[in-house]
C-alpha cells in the first residue's frame, strides 16, 4: 500500500495523548479525514461491539489512570525475531518502536507506544491464528502498523514530529505529510 500519511489527534486524557494516522492513496482525489483508528471502530462496531467496547474502555482507563506503561502492551514476536522494528532512541528521549497491541480476547488493535504518555493507534481485527503473520484478518493491519511505526520514527529523527510538554505530548505541523 502506498500513500500519503498524516497524523490525527484522537483524544487527550490525564495521562495519555492518543493519535492515529490518516492514509490517502496518492491516486485518490477525495480528501478523507477518517483515521485508521476511526475506520477500525466503524468496522468493528458492526459485529464486535462488545469487544470494541472493552478495548475502548481499556484505552480510556489507561489514559485516565495509569499511563501507557509498557507492561500493558503485548509484543507480537515471531520466534524471537523483532517483528517490525528494532528500538530506536533519539537523544535520550524514551522513543520506542514496538509491535504493541492492545488486546482483550482476540480483537487486536495495533499501535505504536512512543512512551508512557503518547500512543499512536492504528487498526486491527479479529486474530484467528497464533501469530499475526498467520492470520488473514490481522496480517495486513499488522504489516501496515509496522510500516507506519518506521515512518513515524523517521519523522521524529527529522524533527517533523517532536516532543513537547516535557515528553507528555507531541507536536507537528498541521500540514505534515509523510509517505508510505
Amino acid at each position: 500500500m502506498n500513500g500519503i500519511v498524516s497524523l490525527k489527534h484522537i483524544e487527550d486524557y490525564k495521562k495519555v495523548c492518543y493519535y492515529s494516522v490518516c492514509i490517502k492513496d496518492e491516486s485518490e482525489f477525495n480528501d478523507s479525514s477518517e483515521s485508521l483508528f476511526e475506520a477500525f471502530i466503524r468496522e468493528q462496531e458492526k459485529t464486535e461491539n462488545e469487544k470494541l467496547n472493552h478495548i475502548l474502555a481499556w484505552v480510556k482507563e489507561i489514559g485516565d489512570q495509569y499511563g501507557a506503561k509498557e507492561r500493558f502492551f503485548r509484543h507480537e514476536q515471531n520466534q524471537g525475531e523483532a517483528m517490525g522494528l528494532p528500538p530506536n532512541k533519539i537523544g535520550s528521549e524514551p522513543v520506542y518502536t514496538e509491535d504493541g497491541e492492545i488486546s482483550p480476547n482476540n480483537l487486536r488493535l495495533y499501535c505504536h507506544r512512543l512512551n508512557d504518555n503518547v500512543v499512536i493507534l492504528f487498526s486491527g481485527g479479529l486474530k484467528t491464528a497464533d501469530t499475526p503473520q498467520e492470520c488473514p484478518n490481522v496480517k495486513p493491519h499488522f504489516k501496515l502498523a509496522n510500516k507506519l511505526t518506521v515512518i513515524i520514527d523517521e519523522a521524529f529523527k527529522n524533527k517533523d514530529i517532536f516532543w513537547v510538554d516535557e515528553f507528555n505530548d507531541i507536536d507537528y505541523s498541521d500540514d505534515l505529510t509523510l509517505y508510505l
Binding site: H9, I10, E11, N53, K60, D171, Y172
Partner: peptide
C-alpha cells in the same frame, strides 16, 4: 492542531 474526543464520544453513545 484540532483536539478531538473520539473515544469518549463513542463510549458515551455506545458504551
Amino acid at each position: 492542531m484540532k483536539k478531538n474526543n473520539i473515544i469518549s464520544n463513542w463510549l458515551k453513545e455506545n458504551g
